[in-house]
Amino acid sequence: MAAYRADDDYDYLFKVVLIGDSGVGKSNLLSRFTRNEFSLESKSTIGVEFATRSIRVDDKVVKAQIWDTAGQERYRAITSAYYRGAVGALLVYDVTRHVTFENVERWLKELRGHTDSNIVIMLVGNKADLRHLRAVSTDDAKAFAERENTFFMETSALESMNVENAFTEVLTQIHHVVSRKALEVGDDPAALPKGRTINVGSKDDVSAVKNAGCCSA
């Protein structure tokens, strides 16, 4: 596990959003990643919350500012306002509730409607520890991810399985995209403020990255 670092000591700040239906485990993925905590009783997220953690990616310190959003439709208008400026997204569903996977398509639409088209998206099937209750097959999800050009991983916030990997992968891919873009433009990436104005590159970039890095549990 990468070392937790001081808040202000970073080369990049990337804004990442966690989206998906209510109760799929977004808040626990976040608390597992940023504080290594998990709670069965974590309360529903009202509006948005966020947490940060810095990790090392390719010799650079990347600070991830991860926004955890309310899952319920009702809060969509508020939460979608926070999509703005996001360069990465983890679109979470619950592998034991098929309906949360069905809704992924709507979430994706929503996300793409509010963010730069080049945002790095990872489809995350959470609660993979509940093997006996599985309702969404890995193959189905993988196929969907390929079709939609997103990354894919199955995780378990409870067992701390793949959580680190999922976030790290997203951050790494964002970094790749940003670096490449920076080279093209000749910009100094370190000077970019707050991650909000980072252009993560053209659609092709993301696709290329995606093909190289798709993985699953």
């Binding site: 209510s22 109760g23 009783e41 529903s44 439709e73 009702r74 969509r76």
Partner: peptide, 23 residues
């Protein structure tokens, strides 16, 4: 809009999710 997006079945599901995680 709300009717298009949400329905009783959804509410039923979310209510149960929230109920079991009341502190």
């Amino acid at each position: 809009k709300s009717h298009a997006d949400e329905d009783f079945a959804t509410w039923q599901r979310i209510i149960r999710v929230d109920a079991v995680r009341a502190n």
